[in-house]
């Protein structure tokens, strides 16, 4: 069981991570989440241009045994998806914080970022 938590990211209680860079954010699932899911075999990515509200379903990842919804930590518009995951979804298991990123969004409501969990809070949640 691995549970890496990075200091430069924000988190949700549904185990997504988000990296904010000006008005753009990159989103993925945490090391803890990938480890719980194990063996991700499919990622159904959203369409570029889709607008999401905080908490909307962002995409679906499937492991051998289960189907899991990934939720958007904040509101925004999808501007990029990680195409590599279409043929190699296992990258999420191997490298959840770098190569295993899922989508990039343009942020529509900065204020929502404040409510996300910081690394310490997320650590508490999964302990």
């Amino acid at each position: 069981m691995t549970n890496e938590i990075r200091d430069d990211l924000k988190y949700t209680d549904s185990h997504e991570w988000i990296k904010v860079k000006d008005d753009i954010a990159i989103i993925g699932i945490t090391d803890h989440a990938q480890s719980e899911l194990t063996d991700i075999v499919f990622a159904e990515l959203p369409v570029i241009g889709k607008e999401l509200k905080k908490g909307d379903e962002l995409c679906v990842v499937e492991s051998v045994k289960s189907v899991s919804e990934i939720y958007s930590p904040i509101s925004g518009k999808i501007i990029n998806v990680n195409k590599k995951l279409e043929d190699n979804p296992e990258i999420i298991n191997e490298n959840p914080y770098d190569d295993g990123w899922i989508v990039e969004i343009s942020i529509t409501n900065e204020k929502e970022i404040v409510n996300l969990l910081d690394p310490k809070e997320y650590k508490k949640l999964i302990e």
Binding site: T38, D39, V41, S63, V64, K65
Partner: peptide
């Protein structure tokens, strides 16, 4: 038990 390490493995 559903798995010990990983289903694929």
């Amino acid at each position: 038990p559903i798995y010990y390490s990983s289903i694929k493995n």
